[in-house]
Every structure is written in C-alpha cells, then in structure tokens.
Design a protein around this nucleic acid. Structure first.
Length: 438
RNA sequence: CGGGGUGUAGCUCAGCCUGGUAGAGCGCCAGCUUUGGGAGCUGGAUGUCGUAGGUUCGAAUCCUAUCGCCCCGACCA
C-alpha cells in the first residue's frame, strides 16, 4: 500500500476531547474518528487492526471448539419479555419501534437470541455439548461513554454461548473458554489476568474477568505478581481435561474490587499487586438462568427432559484495540505487537524522485508483497522528519529506511519500532531478516 | 442522573470581562529555496463565531433558552 494513496489522516496535535492515551493516539494516527458520543467511525488503519484482533479471537475460538454464527443486531422485544429482562435491563438498552409499532431493541447482548436458536433446533443430549459464538456489534446506551473506545456505546464484541447436559460438562466448556482466553490475549500482546468477578446482571455464580493492568483502567484490581510472567499454555488439547490448567491459573490470589478480600490479599505481602485494570473479557457459568425461563431443554440419556446448562463468554474486541495501545506505546506513538499491526513493515523513501531510492523502494515493496507481508510504502514527497514521525505514530513494527546515502553503498536501514534499534543492512538482508522474524 | 468545563478556520487556541463588524500558529493550495527526525520565504483559499430567540444604532462579546462534546462521581463488556 502506498501511503500517498492510503486514507490515514494523521494529526500533529492532540485533539482536545481525547484525554486518555489510547484515544489520543487512535485519533492522531488516523485510525478512528468520532461520530457522536461513544460511537466511532473506523478508518482503514483502525479497521485493519480491529480485523487482526478479531482474526486472532476467531482462530482461538475455533481451536477451542466453538462455532461461529451471526445473530441479528436488531432484536424483537418478545424474547426479552420471555426471559424477564425486558423490564430489568433499564435505559442502557436502546429500545426502538418498527413501522408497525412493534417493540424492537438494539442488542446489548445475545443470551435470549442464542437460547432461542438452541431451543428451536436442538432436542437431544446427543447434540451436546455445543458452543456458538459471534463477533458482532453491540449497543449499550451507557450513561457516560468515555475514554474513546474504552467505554463506547457501540462496540464490537465476541460473545460465545455454551450448552451442556450437566454441570460437569458445562464446567469443561467453561474451562475451554478460559484457556482459549489466556491464549487469545497473549497472542495479541496483552497480559490478561483472570480475576474472580461478580457475574452482575448477566447472571450465574462462577465468573472471571480478564484484566489488563493499566493506569487508565476503570476498575481497581488486586493480584499476585507471579501472574505477570506466568507462562501461557501451549499446544492445548481442548478435548482433554483442562482442570489442572484452570486451577493453576486460579490458585493464586487475584480479584476485582467487588470480590477483593483485604485480609487474604495482605497475606501476599510484597507479592501483592494493587493496580488499575481494563477488563478485556469475562467468562460466566450461567447454569439454567436462561434455559429454564426460555424452555431450552433436551432429552437426556434416561429419556427425561432437562434444562440445559449454559455459559457465556465475552471479549470486547474494540476495547482490546484500545487496551493494546494503552499497554504498548511511547512518546512517539503506538508500538504495535506484530500480530495485530495494521502493516507488518513500513518502507520510508527519504528522497522521492531519486531514481536509486525509488527503485530500491519499489523493489522492496514488491518483494514484501510476494512474500505475503503487508507493507506500507511512504512514497509521499515529504521531509524525512515527517515520515519518521508518521511511521512511528502509526506504530509499524518494522521500518525500512531507504536514503540516497545508504543506497549508494548498497544498504538500507532496518529499524525495530519497539526498541528503536537500527541496523544497516542490504535490502536483501532486510528481506531475509523480516522473513525470518515476522 | 448530580457536579464541573467547553463550543470561534481541518487541528490547537486567542479575542468575550470593558459591544464597533474575524485573528494567530500548524495544516491546505501555488511558487522558489531546502531536504537523514514534524523546514524557510512569498503569495493564496477557508468561518452562517454550536443553534434559536432577545437587548442594542450595532452582538463572537451582554441576556434567555436549547443542543453538542469533554472531565469527576454514581453505573457498566
């Protein structure tokens, strides 16, 4: 992609409405633009990152055995009356009427809809367990949207729903999602710590919030410091018993403010971390909270009908983008982890119009494309400083700087955004190195 | 929903107190000079001063209403 033709309106100065760093940088890097309070347009750069985050989530959900579906954003109020939540949910739910004056709503969550799909189509325990998920837009009419994407009203969410015949099986489904979450967040460069949590209005009695520590986080959290470098499970067999992994990850102290036990925490002494955190995901064991009122039952092996055991599992996809920036930036801009970066590598042509520079850049651009890497080629007729500043602001993890001095000697500069380290290398060497490291 | 702040050019802001008919820097366009970390000079374009009323000979400025946005709190993926 040529930067001269790429729609990424960067800002030199900080927009006054953006008070937190992720919001500021997303506006400045041209990733998003605000539409109205808590509702945002995603520009090409932001869209790329959002899709990369969604891709990682999707891959890990699929690996854990969940199946992707798409449910409607606009729902009928009827189902919500059936579950009893139509009156309970409050003003946070956006209620609308269609042309026939029927009550509709923009879904803040999808327990009702997914349970309706289930009860209409699954009748036997033989079809269990099953886990359905979607990555879709939600709307919650927050009293006070704030911090850009961190608490938007419209947000992209991955929500999965598991259905099982009994508690033991439901617990396994829960564990599958729990482990998938550990892997998912790690892959996008986030250290997310599972913490015992209240289940809130969603319901149920077993729940974990996955929290990324950050000063700008909205909630106070407490955990053992060993969580910071605990190794993430690899090569997980999701069919096997996952209890030991989950136990390992839940045996150390960690709790959100509501579940905090000051006495227990004090026992940790210097090992206690008391910080603020961003909730990027939450898992809930629901039991029969929805299956009973909505009549989601299956016939068991003994021939008797039973209400199914459910669980639900959310990840704030758009919030993850903000959380990644909160966790990974410096004074010059965003520092994207390779896995979610909008482009793998940037090419900076320091002297557009210089035949040697132009040719070297074109060649690199083409070669990277052939290798399957997304490159952002800054071919603009701008000064070097502008290009360096923009490339750092946008946060491209690898940058190849092509200038007349170097190219005369047959070398370019390969820079790592995260460390700022630069090395002089031949164009071929840079390609080889990127091939090996991306 | 309580409290506070704010709305003037694409962005950051001055002007408002003390009314006299629209400003700066950056950005944008053209030209020249520059060119390895957000260049310099010259010229140029851009505003229903959030909106609606009111006061006044005259309103960005004073008054009233209203809308938007931001921050703190309560509430929440």
């Amino acid at each position: 992609m040529r930067l001269s033709r790429f729609f990424a309106p960067t800002l030199k100065e900080n927009p006054t409405e953006a008070q937190v760093v992720s919001h500021r940088l997303m506006l400045r890097a041209g990733m998003i633009r605000q539409h109205t309070a808590g509702i945002y347009n995603w520009l090409p750069l932001g869209t790329r990152v959002l899709q990369n985050v969604a891709r990682i989530i999707r891959e890990e959900q699929d690996a854990a055995g969940a199946q992707e579906i798409i449910m409607p954003t606009i729902q009928s109020a009827d189902l919500w009356r059936e579950s009893g939540r139509y009156d309970d949910y409050g003003a946070e739910m956006l209620r609308i009427k269609d042309r026939h004056e029927r009550d509709m709503l923009y879904g803040p969550t999808h327990e009702e809809v997914v349970t309706d799909i289930f009860r209409n189509n699954v009748k036997s325990y033989r079809d269990l367990p099953t886990n359905l998920y979607q990555i879709n837009w939600k709307f919650r009419d927050e009293v006070r949207p704030r911090f850009g994407l961190m608490r938007g009203r419209e947000f992209l969410m991955k929500d999965a729903y598991s259905f099982d015949i009994d508690y033991a099986s439901a617990r396994h489904s829960y564990n599958q999602m729990f482990v998938a979450y550990l892997r998912t967040f790690a892959r996008m460069g986030l250290r997310a710590i599972p913490m015992v949590a209240e289940s809130g209005p969603i319901g149920g009695d077993l729940s974990h919030e996955f929290i990324v520590l950050a000063d700008t986080g909205e909630s106070a959290v407490y955990c053992h410091k060993a969580y910071l470098d605990k190794p993430i499970p690899e090569n997980v067999d999701y069919g096997a018993d996952l209890t030991s992994i989950v136990q390992d990850w839940t045996s150390l102290y960690s709790a959100t403010d509501e579940k905090h036990d000051a006495g227990k925490a004090a026992e940790l002494g210097a090992d206690l971390i008391s910080a603020r955190g961003i909730e990027v995901g939450q898992t809930f064991y629901l039991g029969k909270k929805y299956s009973t009122p909505l009549g989601a039952k299956v016939v068991g092996a003994d021939g008797n009908s039973v209400d199914v055991e459910m669980g639900c599992y959310g990840i704030g996809v758009s919030r993850c983008v903000a959380a990644i920036i909160e966790a990974s930036h410096d004074e010059n801009g965003i520092v994207w982890p390779d896995s979610v970066a909008p482009f793998h590598v940037g090419i900076i042509n320091l002297k557009v119009g210089d035949t040697a520079c132009d040719e070297a850049c074109e060649k690199l651009h083409r070669a990277l494309g052939l290798q399957g890497y997304d490159a952002l080629y800054d071919d603009r007729d701008e000064r070097a400083g502008v290009k360096f500043a923009d490339m750092d602001l946008i946060g491209i993890p690898w940058q190849i700087v092509v200038g007349p001095k170097g190219i005369a000697k047959g070398i370019v500069e390969l820079k790592r955004r995260a460390t700022g380290l630069k090395e002089e290398i031949t164009p071929e060497g840079a390609l080889a190195k990127l091939g090996a490291t991306i």
